[in-house]
Nucleic acid binder design. Sequence first.
DNA 1: GTGGTCTAGACCACG
DNA 2: GTGGTCTAGACCACC
Lengths: 137, 137, 137, 137
Amino acid sequence: MVFQVRPDSPVPIYEQIAAQVVFGVAAGDPPPGSLVPSVRELASQLIVNPNTVARAYQELERQGILESRRGLGMQVTTKAPELCETRRMEIIRQRLLHAVREAAASGLTADDVRSLVEEEWTRASGRARRRGREERT
Amino acid sequence: MVFQVRPDSPVPIYEQIAAQVVFGVAAGDPPPGSLVPSVRELASQLIVNPNTVARAYQELERQGILESRRGLGMQVTTKAPELCETRRMEIIRQRLLHAVREAAASGLTADDVRSLVEEEWTRASGRARRRGREERT
Amino acid sequence: MVFQVRPDSPVPIYEQIAAQVVFGVAAGDPPPGSLVPSVRELASQLIVNPNTVARAYQELERQGILESRRGLGMQVTTKAPELCETRRMEIIRQRLLHAVREAAASGLTADDVRSLVEEEWTRASGRARRRGREERT
Amino acid sequence: MVFQVRPDSPVPIYEQIAAQVVFGVAAGDPPPGSLVPSVRELASQLIVNPNTVARAYQELERQGILESRRGLGMQVTTKAPELCETRRMEIIRQRLLHAVREAAASGLTADDVRSLVEEEWTRASGRARRRGREERT
DNA sequence: GTGGTCTAGACCACG
DNA sequence: GTGGTCTAGACCACC
């Protein structure tokens, strides 16, 4: 599981972190019953305040995706995969909806938008794939 | 020129307003030399504080898209259309990039994303077209 | 008497106009008893709202430099030259004081300031002289 | 770093504050990487509204002189000193230009202006020097 | 604690 | 009527 936050995004960092946990769980990593990285570990990895990570986890706990195991850490629940698959689609759909809606309002044509999406997808997925490879190394 | 803000969006309202002015000018409405709606008028129309609109206009003035005419209002500059076409692409590209990047990170496939985009585009552009028609009525 | 306003100056336009009348009267043009340009004439010459000129004149009337002659216009008073010489020094001193004070606070040296003053003086007085010549033509 | 604003100046307070930060950075205090006084702190020190200080800082951020560090404060950028030396000269030159131009238009002679400048410089720099000494105490 | 955004409402300069 | 500046004070995201 690799995390990455964009401080310049309008999306709050704790939401970015929460979304990435959701994406990971939806993809089967980490699996139910396993522990997510500790607040301090993830915070130091992302160079982010521990409170920010804690808030992301707290949010996920509220959604039934994580549960706190005293003295152990935060554990992925058994129903998490199902919840996360749903959440993932909701999140992505929501983000794309906002972006596409704005593109539509901007006067661009459907083709403009399609080609922009293809272009950015190539960039973004290329990067994601490379990251994935490095990670497995 | 029809404006619409989403107070629940993570994007600041003043940026939403500024973006919509950019989109409008890029589409030729309002044309160079004309006045944008007054701060107070637009504020009351959007049910938003005048300062919020003023901040959007101030941002656009800084970018050379508007200029303040003492006692008259804010005027679209002659070079605004050119600037706005560029800005429009930057804004949309940026938004799509964020959304698509997140979609890529989420583990969705290219086809998932494409079909989501098509679906949301149909919804969004349909709405935009209807709004346009109503406006012309 | 030639007027010139700088809309980009932080000094309000009506004060700029009033100051220029003061400078003119202090230099003997227009002389006591003569009429200053009408509000409308000066306003159209400066491409400025008549109210703005009216306010400048009203300010000067309050200071005893102009007096309103019904149906004629605004007349330079007999004591105006004396008042204007004093006002002129006050105005210039005040402006220079502000500028020099800021220069002192900025950490520039006395020589930096002197050379800046000489440079700007050459530019400004050169332009003023040229304007004077053109005017006499 | 000592700040001082003149509420009666025609120059907006937020510009006065921004200019003083520029002067300070140009003089090496505060150095790159350090934090400027917090918005609230400076506001209470200057007996000014926090928004006014925030606007000054925002202006400087736009110019690349400061950058916001989430939850920490506003940090002087590495390229700030260079930018500030340039900005300092621009600001002072601009102010002196306005004042000198007006002096030239007023009919004063070069010597009048020079002696006024010397006089005001002595006053202003004397005061600045005294303030500096007190500050170091 | 930090800055960022927004609201509400004042006064000023200008048309 | 217009925008520009300033004040006062709210809530949010983050440290």
